[in-house]
């Protein structure tokens, strides 16, 4: 316990918590995005994938609890650092100016808050199925939970699609600063690798965002269509 307390006492260790938990969350996003891309392959593939995840049983709950723990630690550390950072400058400058701080870096707390709000909605929508319960109970031809149709029906609502697309753009903004920062915080900074780290940060953010966005966009443009027999409500 004392080690954990010490972790949160120093600003650097709080930042290491931010970076470490952030790394796990980025890897999760990448995996989640790759899994979701199976929406482009079709109903069969997607539903089998979803069923495989569901059949993990206890393991699924261990993964979920782990992710929740990392997310909570990420948020706690960010709130603690934000409070500390605000108190470090009680009197603001009359003339505010910056030389090279990017917009993404200056809005991390806000993109973070927006992502947390979106995540709540996303879980209510597709995991708990509270916001669109009428699509939650669908089954496909062989009796599997029809995740594919649930997602298509969800995204056919333009408003829902816009919310998802906008949230992913904000996520990308968050990641573009986050991934590069992660390296610096963990002490990885070397003239030989810095430009690679920058390119990796931008590329990974774009891949994650475009990957996720391709699904609502695919549904809106009709590339990802409802299977025969399922009708839009």
């Amino acid at each position: 316990m004392s080690a954990l307390v010490r972790f949160f006492q120093s600003t650097i260790l709080s930042k290491v918590v931010m970076a470490g938990t952030g790394l796990v969350l980025v890897l999760f996003l990448l995996g989640h995005m790759i899994g979701n891309l199976q929406m482009h392959i079709g109903q069969e593939k997607m539903n089998v994938y979803a069923e495989t995840l569901q059949h993990l049983g206890g393991v699924l709950w261990i993964i979920r609890s782990g992710l929740l723990l990392f997310l909570v630690l990420h948020i706690i550390a960010s709130i603690r650092l934000k409070a500390l950072n605000l108190s470090a400058r009680p009197e603001a400058y009359a003339f505010k100016n910056t030389v090279k701080a990017t917009l993404a870096s200056r809005t991390m707390i806000w993109t973070g808050v927006m992502i947390a709000l979106f995540l709540t909605y996303h879980l209510l929508h597709f995991t708990i199925k509270a916001t669109n319960p009428q699509f939650g109970g669908l089954v496909d031809a062989v009796g599997r939970h029809d995740v594919y149709s649930m997602v298509v029906l969800g995204y056919q609502n333009v408003l829902i699609s816009i919310v998802y697309i906008a949230a992913m753009v904000l996520l990308g903004y968050h990641l573009i600063h986050a991934i590069e920062s992660m390296f610096q915080t963990l002490g990885i900074n070397h003239p030989k690798y810095n430009s690679f780290i920058h390119r990796l940060s931008v590329t990974l953010s774009l891949v994650i965002v475009i990957g996720f966005i391709s699904i609502p966009v695919g549904v809106l443009f009709g590339w990802i269509a409802l299977p025969a027999g399922v009708v839009a409500l």
Binding site: T11, I12, S87, V99, K100
Partner: peptide, 10 residues
Amino acid sequence: GFGGCTNQYE
């Protein structure tokens, strides 16, 4: 009472 680094490099 200094703040933490947010890697903006100002």
